[in-house]
């Protein structure tokens, strides 16, 4: 990694350390704009994630984090700009992405076991019967995330922490290059959250798997992030090392870029921790 000034197009000028540009890029977003009638949700987002890097995507509610994720995942069309995953247009590389959604998006009353979810991710369709090799693979990936006892458990009976383990397993089962986690610890109890953070820290230590974690949880940022991208009002306000952004001086910089009253009150600013 090299310490450089932020000079990418659309980036604020400041002393943020960007990834080494010579590293291969798992995700590359260039000047991404997303409009809905009467409103611009994303306003020229540009950054990249090199192989193996764990990025925390932060920002206040309404900053565009969810829109950004949906666009990367192909669930929302970009108005302009480009998203490339492993060098290919995002729509053609979705198998390279593992996704852990917010807990509220899935129907947890659905009559299913953990193994069904994982095999559905492997097949791209819901399994009626599970083959032995699929069972073995599901068991292996659950063991990898410390959830070996959850294989046959009904999803309606999973605790918050167990649910996220299973969803992480289903995201990892196809050996993606990039895993995207959307506030995975929101609504999870303290013990479950701490255990899940341990898991995320393991992913962060991996040199192979890149990750984007959307979070409001400062503990998660401090524990896992190798880089932080801070969104505000649909723009990248800051992109750098956690130490640079979590420090008081850089928060002032973020606030200054965000503009208006924020700059004047920068000494009061914190990354929001809503969990």
């Amino acid at each position: 990694m090299s310490a450089v000034h932020a000079e990418a197009e659309g980036m604020p000028q400041g002393h943020f350390t960007l990834p080494d540009p010579s590293l291969s890029r798992v995700l590359e977003v260039e000047n991404l704009i997303v409009d809905v009638p009467g409103r611009r949700l994303l306003d020229g987002i540009s950054f990249w994630v090199p192989k193996g890097e764990f990025v925390c995507l932060c920002g206040p509610n309404g900053a565009g984090k969810s829109t950004f994720l949906k666009t990367v995942l192909g669930l929302m069309p970009p108005t302009s700009g480009s998203i490339r995953i492993m060098g290919k247009p995002a729509q053609k590389a979705l198998r390279e992405v593992g996704y852990v959604p917010q807990r509220k998006t899935s129907d947890m009353t659905f009559p299913a076991r953990s193994i069904d979810l994982i095999v559905a991710s492997m097949r791209g369709s819901w399994p009626l019967r599970i083959r032995e090799e699929e069972r073995a693979r599901a068991a292996e990936i659950l063991r990898h995330v410390g959830g070996e006892k959850l294989l046959e458990k009904e999803i309606a009976r999973l605790s918050g922490g167990e649910t996220q383990r299973v969803f992480l397993a289903r995201a990892l089962v196809n050996k993606p290059s990039l895993v995207i986690l959307d506030e995975p610890t929101a609504g999870v109890d303290v013990k479950g959250r701490a255990e899940f953070l341990d898991l995320l820290a393991e992913i962060s230590a991996s040199d192979e798997l890149a990750a984007i974690l959307v979070t409001h949880n400062l503990a998660a940022v401090a524990r896992c992030a190798e880089r932080v991208v801070y969104l505000d009002a649909g723009r990248v306000s800051a992109w750098g090392l956690p130490s640079e952004l979590l420090g008081q001086a850089s928060l002032s910089a973020i606030s200054a870029v965000a503009g208006g009253d924020h700059a004047a009150h920068s000494h009061h600013h914190h990354l929001p921790d809503e969990e």
């Binding site: 959604p101 998006t105 899935s106 129907d107 659905f110 299913a112």
Partner: peptide, 9 residues
């Protein structure tokens, strides 16, 4: 079960 995950698959 989950339209978003299904769409991604």
């Amino acid at each position: 079960f989950d339209p978003e995950l299904a769409a991604l698959s």
